[in-house]
Design a protein around this nucleic acid. Structure first.
Lengths: 239, 239
DNA sequence: GAGTGGTCTAGACCACGCA
DNA sequence: GCGTGGTCTAGACCACTCT
């Protein structure tokens, strides 16, 4: 009959409900979700439909399933967070681990460009973090990080910040970073870059502009990185 | 009981069989596979098991499914190939299309490093392509491409080469490029780069080293790109 | 042994494309 | 109207974890 414009398959509806609940913090990171049977009963669908959704969420890295144990909200542990969102490796493919060298944290009004990119209101404030990270003990990455203050109250007082912010966002603010978009371009080191990174002015740098998203389509963080790559490369696999 | 070391779920076995058939060229690009029912009957499994495999292959971009029509081997059309493997966009996110400006093609013995990276025997030959590509009519990309000659007989005689080689590999050599690994790093323009790309010596360049894979784990191509990025960025989404 | 996810099946019905 | 893929269900049995 008159086609309902709003038809969505059952599994889409189930997916939306689960995403909403996860986003709302019904279950915290590391906690188990109800079993397939329980969810199916609760939502009035078959176990197979719930399974289809949970399998998809697993593929997206949002939950983890362990046979015999249950389904868990994926945790952004320090290690997992690094492997997922820090793409620099040695030429050999070996992962590297950046360490924090220094950081400065400020609370200030958002600039116009930041308001626009983070969907903020006029007058909104942001936390700005500048930090230097080392690889193999050598300064290698300059980061400028912008987060809406309303999402991370008190962040500016939490010094020193952990090496991987995303695990902090998750554990303290229930912001589960699930995806990020990055834009890469080359630049040459300015005099200031050169001082901070211990390279010559004019040396090649890899710049990475990232915007990170948490669950209910929330834009959580802008991050601008300037990387003195030396023997490091940004690794990505296209499928 | 004594656990069978070689146990694999049915759907893995079905997947392997289908991958083998696709790799062997049983169906060509754009052709339809047998229906789910026919495959299930052929392979002695249920339709649901075949469906699970075909859904996974769809997610990997290897086949396409169209309701009411059938399941097709995915085609690397010029457009699709570009969108899938050429990641440069404008800052606005808008896609750009590179055009061929010039190219030189040589047939020569593989160097030691190439033998190693492409799993070639001693004495194997490669086709080497050097080309310049333009964006908005301006030279922007220098590419050096290495392909084992045995995989692409006669390629060196096919001048001019099409803009997107991957569609040629697929249509003429049954090499279906399904994934690629890229490593990015910054560099500064040499005098030669500067001449070819119309930038100043010392200008920042984005370098991309790619290795491309076809179906049965075949390493098909090495590609080294040097990109005068100007207002272009390399876009990637992490999930 | 009880409960969980993992695999596999069989079948119903719907939506779409095409002759 | 037929054949295709898309959705959804119900149920069986297996593998793993914990008690």
């Amino acid at each position: 009959m008159s086609a309902s414009q709003t038809y969505r398959p059952l599994y889409r509806q189930v997916r939306d409900i689960l995403l909403e609940r996860i986003g709302a913090g019904v279950w915290r990171a590391g906690e188990t979700l109800p079993s397939e049977q329980a969810l199916a009963l609760d939502l009035g669908v078959s176990q197979g439909t719930v399974r289809k959704v949970l399998d998809a969420l697993t593929a997206e890295g949002l939950v983890e399933r362990r046979q015999g144990k249950g389904t868990f909200i994926a945790e952004n542990t320090q290690t997992r967070s690094l492997f997922r969102f820090f793409r620099m490796t040695r030429r050999s493919g070996e992962r590297v681990i950046p360490e924090r060298l220094s950081e400065t944290v400020r609370l200030r009004p958002a600039r116009a460009a930041e308001q626009k990119r983070l969907d903020l209101d006029r007058g909104a404030r942001v936390v700005e973090i500048d930090r230097v990270r080392t690889i193999d003990g050598v300064p290698a990455v300059l980061e400028n990080i912008i987060v809406p203050a309303v999402l991370v109250p008190g962040l500016e007082a939490r010094k020193p910040l952990p090496n991987t912010l995303y695990s902090l966002y998750q554990s303290e603010y229930h912001l589960n970073i699930v995806s990020a978009h990055e834009e890469l371009y080359p630049d040459v080191a300015s005099a200031a870059d050169a001082r901070a990174l211990g390279v010559a002015a004019g040396a090649p740098l890899l710049c990475v502009d990232r915007i990170a998203y948490a669950l209910p389509q929330t834009k959580v963080e802008l991050r601008f990185s300037r990387i003195a790559s030396r023997d490091l490369v940004y690794s990505v696999t296209l499928n």
